[in-house]
Simulated assay, not measured.
Amino acid sequence: MDAREWDRHIVEKKIDCLGQDRRDSVFLYDLSAGGCMVEFPEAAAKTGERIEL
């Protein structure tokens, strides 16, 4: 397995997420300079939809 390019920080926090026409709470974890992991509730964002955290 290759080493990760950036260090990851363990974050476990519910945050607001703005979609095209709605605001949802999402679960944020594994934050790094290259991105993060976000867990959405069912039927939240659609594939390819632009979101703001």
Rank of each mutant, 00 (worst) to 15 (best):
I15V: 11
V26M: 02
L18E: 09
S32M: 03
T47Y: 13
V11D: 01
D2V: 09
Q20M: 14
A43N: 15
L28V: 00
D30R: 07
E49D: 05
C17G: 09
V11N: 09
R8Y: 10
L31Y: 06
L18W: 07
S25Q: 08
I10T: 15
F27Y: 11
E49L: 02
G48M: 01
E39K: 15
G34S: 08
I15C: 08
A43K: 14
A3H: 04
G35C: 08
C17R: 02
E5M: 04
F27G: 01
A44W: 12
A3W: 00
T47D: 09
I51S: 01
R23I: 13
S25C: 08
I15W: 05
A45D: 09
G35T: 10
E12Q: 14
C17E: 01
H9L: 13
G35Y: 14
D30Q: 14
A44C: 15
D30M: 11
G34D: 07
C17H: 03
Y29L: 12
R22S: 03
D30S: 14
C36T: 09
D21I: 04
G35H: 06
M37F: 12
I10A: 15
K14L: 12
I10S: 15
R8N: 06
S25M: 10
R22M: 00
A43Q: 15
H9C: 14
R22P: 00
T47G: 06
E39N: 14
L53H: 07
V26Y: 02
P41Q: 12
R50G: 02
L53M: 12
A44K: 12
D24E: 11
S32Y: 05
E42A: 11
I10G: 10
D7N: 11
V26I: 14
S25P: 07
G48L: 00
I51C: 05
R23S: 05
D30H: 08
E52G: 07
S32E: 04
R22L: 01
D16R: 09
D2R: 06
L53G: 05
F27D: 01
V26R: 04
C17Q: 03
I51Q: 02
S32Q: 00
E52H: 07
R8C: 10
D30N: 13
D2N: 07
I10W: 15
A44Q: 10
L28R: 02
K46L: 13
E42H: 14
D2L: 04
V26S: 00
F40G: 05
G34R: 01
V38I: 13
I51M: 07
W6K: 06
D21R: 06
E52D: 09
P41L: 08
T47K: 11
E12P: 13
G35A: 06
